[in-house]
Amino acid sequence: MSSEVLRVSNLRKRFNDLLVIDSISFSIKSGEFFCILGPSGCGKTTLLRIIAGFEDYEGEVLLKGEKIKKPGPDRVLVFQDYALFPWRTVIGNVLFGIESKLQKREALKVAEEMLKLVGLEGFEKSYPHELSGGMKQRVALARALVCDPAILLMDEPLSALDAQTRMEMQAELVKIWQRTKKTIVYVTHSIEEAVFLADRILVLSKRPARAKALVEVKLERPRNRFDAKFTEISQKIYDLLKD
């Protein structure tokens, strides 16, 4: 029985007159890989930004019992387009969140270990524009992980990658998640990706987003995309999204 990290209840969000999120409730357990799945434009990014602390909202969003009011390193958001600082090297980017909190040598050690974990040893001194999309995403992931957040928020982090790299990164993300035991909230609009990654999947409706279902994926990891059970769950979610 793991403990609850995040609780969202009766969450509503409007931009002026546009209702984007309509009374959503769910909670996330510690160490869980939680996917949010929904059609394009339904409000997934908005939901993630609310948890990150960038948007105001109606209702309740509690992190370990405390209301979320502003952004902070206990909930690091990984942006879809990486948003690496182009004026910093790879190691400089990873150091950003810890250099003022840890001693220089210790910070460097933590950052280098994290780069090893995401498979970027030897690229410490490269600048972001010298990296491929997959490598940039790894840097963004390492930069978030060194802050040791209670929740890692990821907004379609792999959607800009080609299919091959994307599948490799998914497998690697699962490994990193297993090793770091982080709670991950992962937004995607790909059913296959959600089923491959998640412990549970929150399926959202078209805008305004409502919770359609909460699907539990009880498959062993590493998962096989061609497994009968895998396709069965995918089919079920597909039907859910359709109507």
């Binding site: 990150a52 960038f54 902070g72 690091v76 942006f79 004026w87 969140g97």
Partner: peptide, 27 residues
Amino acid sequence: KKFVEVALTLGASRFEILRKVIIPASM
């Protein structure tokens, strides 16, 4: 704006944002 938001989510203070994001980005 996204650079400022990344800094915020990584826990940067207002002064750190000036020193570590605004100034280098405006260089």
